[in-house]
Amino acid sequence: MQLKEYLLSLKKESPNLKVDRGGGMKVFVLAKHAADPESEIKVSSDGKNVETSGLIFDINDWDRYAIEEGIRIKEKIGGEVVVVGVGKNCDDTLRKCLAMGADRAIKIPVDTNDAYQIAELIKKAIEKEKFDLIIAGYMSQDMNYSLVGALLAGMLNLPFATAVTSLKIDGGKVVAVRELEGGYKEEVELQIPCLITVQSGINEPRYVSVMGIKRARTKEIREVKLELPPSAVNILKIYPPPIKLAEILTGDASQIAAKIVEIVKSRGLI
């Protein structure tokens, strides 16, 4: 099957996904309210979670680029930007996206870090909406799965591209440049509707302005209550990285040299 036929077949299988660009693009952006990896991270007493006290939460860094990209598309060709967040306490991140320029938000007040569950929840919350493009961050700064975007595309039968570093809307198509290993690039063409995950650096996200925060006051955050779907993954344990020890050697050159020999020998290297 040729790609075009394949994409058309996908569309047939997804009757709810209608291309609607009468007033520009309708873009959905996924934004996670995620723990900052530079905050103080402690494993919880059950050994399977991370203590949330002491963590700083903010919009996932990759999602900042995703929301910026969505807003830029709207500013260029018109349309609507809808931001979607999962989590009971994701309001700050949704409000931030609204203050940056998103038009409305959908909040799914369920707490989970399981990528499959998150994708399933988002699918249920948006499957009745019309959209042209879904943009997600390449990965989340806390769990690092890089899965939600791809899983959601699969669940919605959408073509998708990951790690996108530049994006062009060309009629009914999205032309995306993907980042490959070793600095290589790949240019791909996707039929709309489609999903992309963006790499950091695709744009320079704007700062939230006080005026934007005020404008966001009247924008809607709609809550969609959903049951937590079953999870396929059972976390056995979470543990901290090994502590790397450093030692500053003191003494004169011959004493330091002798100590180095001793250390290297003790590691079985000589």
Binding site: I56, D92, R217
Partner: peptide
């Protein structure tokens, strides 16, 4: 992002908008 000294949870006395302004200026 830097987590500011907040021993008495003053953050909770600020509105969501005020926290957003603080975070944006800090960033």
């Amino acid at each position: 992002m830097f987590k500011s000294t907040d021993f008495y949870c003053i953050d909770e006395l600020l509105t969501e908008e005020e926290r957003l302004i603080r975070n944006s200026v800090r960033e």
